[in-house]
């Protein structure tokens, strides 16, 4: 489940963006040097962006800037999201290599609504998502057209500024360190000596780790550990026949009772209900934490939002 915290986004060769539809289960904190525009096509998903988090509902659109540490979680098995990821290089004609655009687009928080509203952005992005999934000879051109329309829309109507980072960044930015700690927690959540492991791994005392996680992610080590353990337990519950007690131990919970309590708090149901199908969980993974979904449903939703249906 834990992926690399620096997520490399492979673009289809020759096309400057990647667009895909997926169902979110859990995506741990990570960052990448691409912009990520996300539209909720159905259901609801919680977005974690640094210390902020908020619920995104059907129709919401957010743009995450490059290098921003973020993650998603959802307990809604019916959620469906469109992701459009594109490189900073799409703006290389406009900016030099040390400059980046930072956009302010989040329909859930409502910060600085775009000049022409959210619709033109949603339409352009959904057209892109729709055409990327088509195979007709013209689809790629239509997708490209939609993508460049989307970029123009961002530049014209979405509040954005230009950032220039200090030349010698010196020490690692706090949020990137926090993402690495979060990743380490996910990978080693079963360990009974996790706290010590972390201080040893990162060469920082517990207080520093605490401050870093709290500042950058707004979470404590315990909260991140609980989430990671629950996510791991979900996999074991779904894909193995291990006993619930064994799973609790395997995931680093000190007792079955603690496991039950934590699981219920995070998901709203018990481990047993989950195993029995209380949360329908599709199998297979496309990208870390992004699950498969009903393909037809995606096309219908995209077409509708894009005004093509």
């Amino acid at each position: 489940m834990a992926g690399s915290i620096y997520e490399r986004i492979a673009h289809v060769s020759g096309f400057p963006a990647k667009a895909f539809v997926t169902c979110i289960q859990n995506s741990t904190y990570h960052w990448h040097s691409d912009y990520e525009l996300m539209i909720v096509l159905g259901g609801e998903v919680r977005l974690f962006e640094g210390p902020e988090h908020q619920m995104l509902r059907t129709g919401d659109v957010v743009l995450l800037n490059s290098r921003v540490v973020h993650g998603y979680r959802s307990n809604d098995p019916n959620n469906l999201c469109l992701f459009v990821q594109f490189s900073e290089r799409v703006f290389e004609e406009l900016l030099d290599e040390r400059m980046t655009f930072r956009f302010y687009l989040n329909s859930a928080s409502g910060v600085y609504p775009p000049k022409n509203g959210y619709d033109p952005i949603v339409v352009a992005a959904c057209k892109l998502g729709y055409y990327m999934r088509q195979t007709s000879p013209s689809a790629a051109y239509k997708a490209a057209s939609s993508f460049f329309g989307l970029l123009a829309e961002l530049l014209d109507n979405v509040v954005h500024d230009i950032r220039r980072a200090p030349l010698s960044a010196g020490k690692e930015p706090e949020d990137e360190l926090a993402a690495r700690v979060s990743d380490f927690i996910s990978a080693n959540c079963s360990s009974q000596t996790l706290a010590e492991d972390i201080t040893r791994e990162f060469g920082l005392n517990e207080k520093s780790i605490y401050r870093c996680l709290k500042n950058a992610l707004g979470a404590t080590q315990k909260e991140l550990t609980d989430i990671a353990r629950i996510e791991r337990s979900k996999l074991l519950l779904r894909h193995t026949s291990m006993s619930i007690l064994d799973i609790a131990q395997e995931c680093g919970f000190i007792s079955e009772a603690t496991f039950y309590r934590t699981f219920k708090k995070e998901t709203g149901i018990t481990p047993k209900e989950f195993r029995d199908g209380g949360l329908s969980l599709p199998t297979g993974f496309e990208v870390q934490g992004y699950l498969n979904y009903d393909s037809m449903d995606a096309d219908v939703r995209l077409a509708r939002l894009a005004g093509l249906a």
């Binding site: 040390r98 302010y104 509040v159 500024d161 220039r164 200090p166």
Partner: peptide, 20 residues
């Protein structure tokens, strides 16, 4: 400004949105 102060964090904004 970028060249004189390479160690500074610089934000440029055209000013269209007064709140920002």
């Amino acid at each position: 400004i970028s060249e004189m102060l390479p160690e500074a964090e610089i934000a440029f904004y055209d000013g269209g949105n007064l709140d920002h």
